[in-house]
Design a protein around this nucleic acid. Structure first.
Lengths: 246, 246
DNA sequence: CCGGGTTAGATTGTATACGAGATCACAAGA
DNA sequence: TCTTGTGATCTCGTATACAATCTAACCCGG
């Protein structure tokens, strides 16, 4: 519960119209930045107090997050930040490979000067964040780079799916990363950018494949790594017990 | 509003635990069976009366449907069955190609005797439905065939995405189909089944590509077909006006 | 000292009330 | 006749109250 204080509202980047969008984006960003660890309880009342809205709004935001699979709502037991099992992590990565490769191919095809410029700025910002030691922003911008690719691909359904798998990847990294190198090093993002600029789909696809290999390579998905958190370790068991947790 | 009476509860197939799941599945199936046309208003109070629950439950179900993009919630204006524009339809089909090809490849790889048996039964049921002239069930089973493939692929994220694009396809067909042949003829489904049984991924992928070509070929997406419904014609305009309708 | 059962407290699930905004009908003017 | 303005009515958006369920602390027996 004390960890929720980290959600303190602060200026947020993009278009946030309604109240539940604001709440949604704050929680989403907190998860993307790994300020909210997998398994963290998301109490409706506590969040309502923090954001100054009623439980109704919080509930809507949590529902959306649960549809994107980054939050798990257990009936009568409340919401927690999702903690994908090893098997789920594998499936997420397999799905991510599918969508990322499709996205990068479309991105090369549909790139415009404007979208390329947006990506350049994004890579630059990511580099700056890591340079000044702002790990949280760095991780988030690293994820948003991939979302920007999906925007460039000009396909809303794929963008939505990308949003879901990218944020879930952030959870997987938090759970299973070994060592603590920079995630998704921005050098590779710069390389991807250049590949897109070159207009060569094969090269871009090859680079993305390698990039994803690197990300996955930093994880230990071979067996349940020794975690201190029993809830994480036995999340798969608990899931089966009541049938429909996620 | 009178069309809502078609939602009358009736025995439904699968695991429906909570109240909102029941509502969700009924509406989802009605859309899949094309008993609910794109653009149909989904009044919260009317649905609440039909299903005997309060607006709270209805709202949750509609929210989930809107996250899957089969229902469009317009702020302060209520929910309607989504009516994808031509451009959106193109994007949905492009996304569907991506996921279906990935799914069929994984399905071949992960097929088990049990999952194959489920598919066989499904194809048979679909054939029976069309044979007895039950067009609604036929269309729904045709869509569920593709969902069963995703289950066979053993990848939950891809299954969820498949669910979204398959149901949206049902809307697109309702809007843009020319002529009224059988959708997604079950012969092709039978062919796909045999390809999976043969264990040959290339053959299965080729068949799926052709199958999707057939589905898309029956549509008129070349230009905005002359529709009598201004709301459909200008749905893209209305979307831009208030920013984030879908 | 440990384990099981019971009860108080806290949290979620659902319904409902009320205010805000949109829709529709009708009337007045062009 | 068609358009435009205005008000009544309806629907949605949000907060809140109460019921259902879970959690955890406590007590008691072994």
């Amino acid at each position: 519960m004390s960890s929720l204080s980290q959600l303190e509202p602060r200026p947020i980047k993009s278009s946030s119209n309604t109240q539940d969008d604001i709440v949604y984006e704050h929680i989403f960003d907190a998860i993307l930045e790994q300020r909210l660890a997998p398994g963290t309880k998301l109490s409706e009342e506590a969040l309502g107090e923090i954001f100054g809205v009623s439980r109704t709004i919080i509930r809507r935001a949590l529902l959306r997050l649960s549809h994107e699979q980054v939050v798990s709502i257990r009936p009568n037991r409340g919401a927690v930040v999702a903690a994908p099992s090893v098997e789920e992590a594998r499936q997420i990565f397999a799905a991510r490979r599918v969508v990322e490769l499709a996205v990068i191919e479309l991105a090369v095809k549909n790139a415009t000067p404007e979208s390329l410029q947006r990506i350049r700025i994004m890579v630059q910002e990511e580099q700056n964040a890591f340079a000044r030691g702002d790990r949280g922003s760095g991780i988030r911008l690293s994820g948003e780079f991939h979302l920007e690719l999906a925007r460039m691909a000009n396909n809303t359904p794929l963008l939505n799916f990308q949003r879901s798998v990218v944020s879930q990847t952030s959870l997987i990294i938090a759970l299973y990363e070994v060592g603590h190198q920079a995630h998704c090093s921005f050098n590779e993002h710069d390389g991807l950018l250049k590949a897109i600029e070159s207009g060569n789909p094969e090269r871009a696809i090859a680079m993305m494949t390698e990039h994803l290999n690197h990300i996955e390579g930093k994880l230990n998905l071979d067996n349940e790594s020794a975690s201190t958190d029993l809830h994480v370790v036995f999340s798969g068991v608990a899931k089966k017990k009541n049938g429909r947790s996620r």
